[in-house]
Design a protein around this nucleic acid. Sequence first.
DNA 1: TTCCGGGTCC
DNA 2: GGACCCGGAA
Length: 229
Amino acid sequence: MGKGSIRDKISGEELLRLLRDNLRVDWREYVALVAYETDGNPFAVLAAVVLSQNTNDKNSIRAYLKLRQTIGVTPEAILEASYDDLVEAIREAGLPRQKASALKALAEAVVRWGGENYLLKAPPEELREKLMSIRGIGPKTADVFLSLVRKAPGVFAVDTHAARVARRWGLVGEKAGYDEISKALYNYFGPGNSEEAHRLIIALGRTYCKARRPRCRECPLRSVCPSAQ
DNA sequence: TTCCGGGTCC
DNA sequence: GGACCCGGAA
């Protein structure tokens, strides 16, 4: 099965260019960016990323907008709302009880940390650790925030697309865990490229490198990908 | 009616 | 490896 790595065919920089030239990223489709652009406050972005967990963007954007309209997306508003109202507001995102609890815990933590300013000022590594200590926030959610809002160096958020694509590119083995995949992608694309590369990989994963029945024959990377058929 | 997409915790 | 969940497509 040793299929080799895409690294042997093309540099990360060249691959980035190839992706950029062949895929269109619709930024409005990403709930984190919707939150970033419409509200801009760091808590709202984090809340939006929580809503997007295990949920397609259509559902998470709808849930975000409803939350925004019925309760509000600030730590104070989330803490003030009843659990049941919160669940109702975010229902369309799926896993609403789990996410309502996560939002409550996040709001509580942000208040304990002295407010949203901490999210903007804390050293990224310390913040990552603290975010991940909140039940309902894992590495992906923390890393999306750190790279999108904090532009933290050394971060590459790994969602289901990034993990699958990294495996198919031969950058990591089949059993690689989150941190290993994240490091491999970061090192390959290089500093400063995580955000763009991540968006493009998501677009690639949706359009060509799909979980089932990948469309290798039409894929713009077919000549360099070790998994192309 | 079943299937799909999509992270975190246990 | 199972539990948690929805809307929409097949």
